[in-house]
């Protein structure tokens, strides 16, 4: 007989649920029948490099900061959830010549891939549309499995992308990360770690970025006031479109810093502040 600490037992159980999620993803029905899923489960200190790179990315990108702060907070609390990495090679086409990728045949697609395979902010491409949809179904099954076990989970592009860049799941062109847990309510949807991360002005900016028309006054004069404050008509701020070279530079520097860090973790660049 033994008495277990309930919260600890619940936290420990998350690994079992993560395994169940992996089973569910591999059981997911497919349209192509040709998707080869690769999966890996990362826990605790294995997540450190990913969180580190996410934090670096977060310096210039809100959505990555959003996730980085949450992971960092859970690490500090000692409740870092296991992360299921799900990935696949989505470039290899199904040879259906459907045209959805933008090429008349899969042969033409492959010719283009040979010379032009590249990477975006979080995935390689170009991709086969049907592999992409099948991968979505598989990711959905993993999420649904977590939900079925009453575990909060949120599929993350950010965690998957940094894991892929840090050479997890070799051969995959798209990787997603599914933190299964932590225990508690709305840990990924109303994040405590995010509460004070943005100041009032930054919050206003993210809101306006999502829906600028929400704060637009009468635009008939051709010069619309943006309602950025309570007494918006005093010293009005107008909507205008302009380049932001300062931000562009900061973003480029941020990207360079991220690549440097990835190289360091890969062992091909001298380590500077990265623990071996």
């Amino acid at each position: 007989m033994a008495i277990y600490d309930g919260r600890q037992a619940a936290q420990d159980h998350l690994l079992e649920v993560t395994k169940a999620c992996a089973v569910a993803a591999s059981k997911a029905p497919q349209i192509t029948g040709r998707l080869e899923l690769k999966m890996e489960i990362l826990t605790n200190e294995d997540l450190e490099p990913m969180i580190d790179v996410l934090e670096t990315l977060g310096k210039t990108s809100a959505f990555q900061l959003h996730d980085a702060l949450a992971f960092r907070a859970y690490a500090k609390e000692g409740i870092l959830p296991p992360v299921l990495l799900v990935g696949a090679d989505l470039i290899e086409p199904v040879l259906w010549n459907c045209g959805a990728c933008g090429f008349p045949t899969c042969g033409k697609f492959l010719q283009y891939v040979k010379k032009n395979k590249g990477v975006g902010i979080g995935a390689y491409g170009p991709s086969c549309l049907w592999k992409i949809i099948d991968f979505g179904i598989a990711a959905d099954y993993a999420c649904a499995c977590a939900a079925m076990h009453r575990v909060e989970a949120r599929i993350l592009f950010s965690m998957g992308a940094v894991s892929m860049f840090l050479n997890r799941l070799e051969g995959c062109t798209f990787v997603l990360g599914l933190p299964v847990g932590p225990i508690g309510m709305h840990r990924w949807f109303d994040r405590h770690s995010w509460a004070k991360a943005l100041n009032a002005e930054q919050r206003k900016m993210t809101q306006m970025g999502g829906a600028p028309n929400l704060g637009m006054a009468f635009s008939g004069g051709g010069k619309a006031i943006l309602k950025t404050k309570t007494r918006w008509w005093e010293e009005p701020v107008f909507l205008s479109a302009a380049r932001d070279e300062k931000y562009e530079e900061a973003f480029a520097n941020g990207q360079a810093e991220v690549y440097q860090k990835i190289m360091e973790y890969a062992g091909v660049a001298p380590s500077d502040g990265v623990d071996e």
Partner: peptide
């Protein structure tokens, strides 16, 4: 207008989203 069965290229991230909808229906 279509010159292929499906007219591409398309937004693959949106297509990936469609996968979740299909997955949920199947689940």
């Amino acid at each position: 207008k279509r010159t292929t069965t499906i007219s591409g290229p398309l937004c693959m991230l949106r297509a990936h989203d469609l996968g979740y909808a299909v997955g949920s229906a199947l689940w």
